[in-house]
Amino acid sequence: MTPLLEIKAAIEELPENDVRQLALWLQNYLDEAWDRQMETDLASGRLNDLIAKAEADIAANQVRELDKVLRNA
């Protein structure tokens, strides 16, 4: 059995509260990994073109309010 299958089987044996705690821990782990990747990408300059485009769009008033975007307005 692979480690992933072993982990899945072990999770299925846990009480619901433990699964929820594990899910929270896993989400925090993934959030921190995302943050580290963003910091790495920013430091390396990989985001420079996107930042420049966003700044140009803001300067040209080519942006919409976030809540309007989220509501598809």
Score class of each variant (00 low, 15 high):
Ala56Cys: 05
Gly45Leu: 03
Ala73Asn: 14
Glu13Ile: 06
Leu47His: 01
Gln62Phe: 01
Asn72Ile: 12
Gly45Ala: 07
Leu5Ala: 15
Val63Leu: 02
Leu26Ser: 10
Ala10Cys: 07
Asp18Trp: 05
Ala56Arg: 09
Thr40Gln: 15
Leu24Cys: 05
Thr40Cys: 04
Tyr29Trp: 13
Ala54Val: 13
Arg71Ser: 15
Ile58Ser: 07
Trp34Ala: 07
Gln21His: 08
Asp57Ser: 10
Asp57Tyr: 02
Val69Trp: 03
Asp57Leu: 12
Ala56Ile: 01
Asp35Cys: 06
Gln27Asp: 15
Leu4Met: 07
Gln21Pro: 00
Leu70Ile: 11
Gln21Cys: 09
Asp41Ser: 13
Arg46Lys: 15
Trp34Asp: 13
Ile7Met: 04
Asp57Val: 00
Arg46Gln: 13
Leu22Val: 01
Leu14Thr: 02
Ala43Glu: 09
Met1Lys: 09
Lys68Asn: 12
Val19Ile: 15
Ala43Arg: 10
Val69His: 03
Ala59Trp: 01
Leu24Tyr: 08
Asn28Ala: 10
Asp18Cys: 03
Ala54His: 06
Trp34Gly: 02
Met1Cys: 08
Ala23Phe: 04
Glu55Asn: 14
Glu32Leu: 14
Ala59His: 05
Glu13Leu: 12
Val19Gly: 00
Glu6Lys: 13
Glu13Ala: 08
Glu32Lys: 11
Ala54Ile: 08
Leu42Ala: 12
Ala43Pro: 00
Gln37Glu: 15
Ile11Val: 15
Gln27Leu: 15
Lys53Arg: 11
Arg36His: 06
Gly45Arg: 02
Ala33Arg: 09
Asp67His: 11
Tyr29Ile: 08
Lys68Thr: 07
Ala73Asp: 15
Ile11Lys: 04
Leu47Arg: 05
Glu16Tyr: 07
Thr40Asp: 05
Asp67Lys: 14
Trp34Cys: 06
Trp34Val: 12
Pro3Tyr: 05
Leu4His: 07
Lys53Gly: 01
Ala33Met: 11
Ile58Leu: 11
Leu47Pro: 00
Arg36Asp: 10
Ala9Ile: 04
Ala10Lys: 09
Ala60Lys: 04
Leu5Asp: 10
Leu5Trp: 02
Gly45Cys: 01
Asp41His: 11
Arg64Cys: 02
Glu12Asn: 12
Ala23Asn: 11
Arg64Lys: 14
Ile7Asn: 05
Glu32Thr: 08
Met38Phe: 11
Leu42Gly: 01
Ser44Gly: 04
Lys8Ala: 06
Glu55His: 06
Met1Gln: 07
Asn72Cys: 13
Ile11His: 03
Gln37Asp: 14
Leu24Ser: 11
Gln27Val: 09
Arg64Glu: 12
Asp18Val: 01
Gln62Tyr: 00
Leu47Asn: 05
Ala43Tyr: 03
Glu65Cys: 02
Glu55Ile: 03
Gln62Thr: 04
Ala56Phe: 02
Ala52Val: 06
Leu14Lys: 04
Pro15Trp: 01
Asp57Ile: 03
Lys8Ser: 09
Pro15Arg: 08
Ala10Gln: 14
Glu6Tyr: 14
Asp57Thr: 01
Glu6Asp: 15
Val63Pro: 00
Asn48Ser: 15
Asn72Ala: 15
